[in-house]
Design a protein around this nucleic acid. Sequence first.
DNA 1: CGGGCCTTTGACTGGTTTCAACTTCTGTGG
DNA 2: CCACAGAAGTTGAAACCAGTCAAAGGCCCG
Lengths: 168, 168
Amino acid sequence: MCSYLKIEDYAKKQHLLEEGEMCTGKYFINSGVVRIYTLSEKGVEQVIHFAIEGWWITDYFTFNTNMPAKCSIQAVEPTQVVMIGEAEQEQLLKELPQMERYFRLVLEKAYAASLMRTHYMFNFSAEERYRHFAGHYPEFVQRVPQYLLASYLGFTPEFLSMLRAKKD
Amino acid sequence: MCSYLKIEDYAKKQHLLEEGEMCTGKYFINSGVVRIYTLSEKGVEQVIHFAIEGWWITDYFTFNTNMPAKCSIQAVEPTQVVMIGEAEQEQLLKELPQMERYFRLVLEKAYAASLMRTHYMFNFSAEERYRHFAGHYPEFVQRVPQYLLASYLGFTPEFLSMLRAKKD
DNA sequence: CGGGCCTTTGACTGGTTTCAACTTCTGTGG
DNA sequence: CCACAGAAGTTGAAACCAGTCAAAGGCCCG
């Protein structure tokens, strides 16, 4: 089974995947943090989400479609991942069909998180989103630079700076 | 296999699931449209997404967690669904492990759609989101009431009304 | 020690919301 | 089949949340 998997280390700011490349597999985060982001027509980078230890990531936009990646994945801090190629995953699933279940459950969790994000995005103001996030994941706020957190929460670094000044 | 499944019909505005109930299974939309929505602290209904023919839906927030539903699912027009209970799904997956794969692929698609929604939400203004949506799914814009579409797109019915008046 | 990247600050702008009043549509019972 | 009530859509004015722009300050890493 280990032959299917490949351990990879990435330095801060190094890319696991860049938009336009072919996405050839999935990554399991062993340690570190990565951000998944897209580039808008206007050239603005938008953080779609972060992934930390224990999460699986890939370009789900184009996964299984044989199209070039629509997003980029970049290490926010030094990160170690376990990579499994597409073909290897197929092979693994053939030999260990129980893994289908595992990957399905991983996806259910990720999907629920994405829906929850949508919920927060719509139902709370920018300030409420920041307070909520900072209250629930204080250690994470320390861990990522402010301009990335601002992008993730859906506002500008300037606005986040103003929020922190107000009361923190 | 048919014994696992139950066909159900819902009238317009009837609920498949209401917040607070236990979510006991998944629904496959045979015909019609449903909306999945949450209620904010302020009492505002927010459409998380729509689902049409061919999609599977459930309360992914609490699915498999034995907690009361965090969202409601309501028929937007007369809708027929195939319902599969949680226990029945487990049984089905045990007998037909290939179905694990099927459900995983369904989830990958749904997850990708959710991420794409996040992308649009952040990178486009309210007006751009409307123009884009109306351009891509004109028949759908006819199909659902404007106040639900406005909620889905993340702005007020009044604003949508103004957009339509401007140029349509 | 220096340069570039990140964060801060403040003034101005504008897209979107809110509110309230009015009109149009829809469905239900008499 | 019509009448009416409630739901959905429209309009316009005023308010505001958050973005943009520009310039200065802090900090990390080579």
